[in-house]
Write a protein that binds this DNA or RNA. Sequence first.
DNA 1: TATAATAATGATAATCATTACTATTTATTA
DNA 2: TAATAAATAGTAATGATTATCATTATTATA
Lengths: 128, 128
Amino acid sequence: MRYSCQRKLIEDILKGRKDHPTADAVYLSAREIMPNISLGTVYRNLKYLADERVIDTLETVDKRIHYDGDRTRHAHFICKKCGKIIDLFEPQELPDEIKKLGLTVSEEKCVYYGECAECKDKADKTSN
Amino acid sequence: MRYSCQRKLIEDILKGRKDHPTADAVYLSAREIMPNISLGTVYRNLKYLADERVIDTLETVDKRIHYDGDRTRHAHFICKKCGKIIDLFEPQELPDEIKKLGLTVSEEKCVYYGECAECKDKADKTSN
DNA sequence: TATAATAATGATAATCATTACTATTTATTA
DNA sequence: TAATAAATAGTAATGATTATCATTATTATA
């Protein structure tokens, strides 16, 4: 593994933020520091880092890949109204069927969709 | 909601199978019965049925939408080796944080990735 | 039942996120 | 330092999904 400054930058950007940016968002951040980094390099390295399990990916209904620099085991909640993604760190047990069916889990991707507290408040206010 | 024969066919196809086909696979099945149905119609109706919550969608690392005619609450396991998708019907509890953070969940999409029993067996045999 | 209103279709073009390609640059190794 | 290999920037290609639009089918209503 050859660590180019571009790859380092991309990893640092992702590790340094707590949200779940798409490749495009990472590209925008990267260009602030390295103005002529190319989008292809960002994609290539995000893919590379994900393959190497340095970062995680999050597949959502928006059909864009969201990247997650936090590899501690956690689930996600996505608000269908505002799009906000919330981390859920409390550990969950694996379904019993996993063991029964002889499956080996290497990755968990639990995503819950619904309405966040803020959007619920807003909805309540406007209905009065 | 106007129920065209195409929409009915697409719903029936999905309800009639236990796998998780992509739009393309549904299109192939549909053409066997209605040879000049268009791919656009298949996409349009799958989207429509998903929006109406008649069917479910499954977003995976392959970046294609998989459709699921079974709307009973269940999780999925995807084998990284053979790509097989296995339904996990045993109910799981929602993370406690959902309640604590005041979130309302309308949809759950839990996907586990790993190795299925068959692929594990094959790997064991070849290593001997 | 005929008609008006409108929703859905088939065919095709457009979109857009992601990947592949290629000449060039950069890093590593001998 | 030269040879080897990997990574980059820039750009073209890919491929799943959507949008468009003229035409057809479905539903409601007179």
